[in-house]
Each structure stands twice: as C-alpha cells, then as structure tokens.
C-alpha cells in the first residue's frame, strides 16, 4: 500500500523586491494527517501557505494537487478545489454580518423564480447554517448572527473564520495561527474542532507557535527556518525542546524527512 501526498510543493520561491520570503521551500501534505508548521517570526510560514492556496503567486517552483501540477491564480480557485484557509489576518469584512461573511462568494439563493431569475439571496437559510456552525464551535456568545463582525472581539472573529473554513472545506484546511487570539477554553474548542475535522478524514495544515498544542495534535511537524523547510519530524520522536532547538538552529536537523507510515514521496 502506498500513500500518496494530497499536495506537494517543490522548490517554492517567492521574492518581494529584495526580500526573499520563501527560498526553494518544499512541502507535502498526506491524506488524513495533521501537519503542523512551526518556525520563528518571519520564517516564511504564512508565505508558504498563501502560495499553496492561491493568495500569493510563486516566482519559481511547482505545486501539485493529487499528483497533478496545478496553478491557482486566486484564492477562489483554491476554494473551488475544496481548500479552505484561515488567514493570519482572518480576511473578514468588518461591516458585513457574521452570516454574510461565512457565505461571502458562495451565497445561497432562494428556490424558484426568485432565485434563478432575480438572484435573490436566501438569507434565512444562510443565517441558520451560520448559527449552527458557530454553536458547534461553542461560540454562541455573540448577540446575533446578523451583527457586524467589527462588533465582535478578536477571539470571536477568529472563531467565525475557523468555523467558515471548517464548514466548507472538502479537500483540506489550512489554519494560520487559528488560536493566536483565543482564550484557554476557546483554544481548546478549536483544537477539538481540528481533531473533529481530522476524524472526518480531512487533512489539516496548522501553523502555530503553541508547542504543547502542536505536540498534542500533530501527526508530523514541518519546521520552517530561514525561508525554507528545515526538517520534518514526528512528535513521538522528539521533545518540545528538541523541536525548538532545531527550529532556532541550536541543534542539527535530522537528515531524514519524516513520512506517515506507508507513504511514498512521489
């Protein structure tokens, strides 16, 4: 049995003028796994995942989805392919409501003539769905689903972004520091949600600076250092301090890239 990667990146390079945000970075994500990405600030983690989901166009390198070379020219393309992303800056529209934000770019229409000819939105169905998803996350401390996102706290906004990604992904989910603004209890919920999503068989890419959380949920840990992939380890094989030492360059990276059991690279 051979397990083939869902997505691979080879030699990904991104330059912003004279800054090289990503320098021949590699990446692979296997079916059903949680892949954590750790690295110092500015190591290029966000740039890597943005390149994978079409928000950033790479200068060099190749991205493959299920083995086929692919080019996403916009986040919409990646979304159409079933890839949902929680961005570090959340990417919500402050003046729009929670429900509007969740369905931005994928609105539901009324049935019959109202929907097909007049393109009338089915606001009720969207509100009900949004409320259901937020309740699953235990985030119903909001006053109403129609309140503008700008009236939410930072953590509540993060909850909305996470709920949106988890609800709509069909291939995999990318989360860039999804618990950075969350309280202890809310972080726990998001971690449980991540495990739920994994239980549905969907792989997840999780960027986090929280080592205990990373070591708790990750199947493999991708360590990013100086704009490229430095190592990939299994949490069972190393301690948190080893991982931090590899990440900061205090310790030699293991020569071998850790793969899930039965996996092949290509």
């Amino acid at each position: 049995m051979s397990l083939k990667p869902v997505m691979t990146g080879r030699g990904l390079t991104k330059r912003y003028g004279r800054v090289t945000a990503m320098d021949r970075a590699d990446f692979e994500l296997y079916p059903g796994e949680i892949l954590a990405i750790i690295g110092d600030n500015g190591a290029g983690k966000s740039t890597l995942v943005k390149a994978l989901c079409g928000a950033v166009q790479i200068d060099e390198g190749e991205i493959r989805l299920d083995g086929e070379p692919i080019h996403f020219s916009s986040p919409m393309d990646a979304r159409d392919a079933g890839i949902e992303t929680v961005y570090q800056n959340l990417a919500l529209s402050p003046a729009l409501s929670i429900a509007d934000n969740m369905f931005l770019g994928r609105e539901l229409y009324k049935e019959g003539v109202a929907g097909s000819v007049f393109r009338m939105l089915d606001k009720k169905r969207m509100r009900d769905f949004a409320r259901e998803k937020l309740t699953e996350l235990g985030l119903m401390t909001v006053q109403s689903i129609t309140q503008a996102v700008e009236t939410l706290s930072g953590g509540q906004r993060q909850g909305v972004a996470v709920a949106r990604a988890a609800a709509f992904a069909t291939r995999f989910v990318i989360m860039d520091e999804p618990t950075a603004a969350l309280g202890v209890k809310e972080s726990r919920r998001v971690l449980e949600l991540i495990l739920d999503v994994k239980a549905r068989g969907m792989p997840i890419v999780l960027i986090s600076h929280n080592m205990p959380h990373v070591f708790e949920v990750a199947d493999r840990i991708h360590i990013h250092r100086l704009s490229r992939r430095h190592a990939v380890i299994r949490p069972q094989d190393f301690s948190m301090s080893d991982a931090v030492a590899i990440m900061t360059g205090a310790k030699e990276a293991p020569a071998e890239i850790a793969l899930p059991e039965g996996a092949v690279l290509h």
Partner: peptide, 25 residues
C-alpha cells in the same frame, strides 16, 4: 441588499484585500 453582487460591493469597499482572500473577484 438581496444579491450576491451587492454583498460583494460592500465587501470590496470595506476591506478589498479581505474580500479578495474570501474568494471575491
């Protein structure tokens, strides 16, 4: 108020980068 295009108009005016990342052209 009642079409997806309308929501997109508001979203673009609100925060264009966020709208782009949310999948609006």
């Amino acid at each position: 108020n009642w079409t997806a295009w309308g929501r997109a108009v508001y979203a673009v005016g609100d925060d264009k980068d966020a709208a782009e990342l949310s999948g609006i052209r």
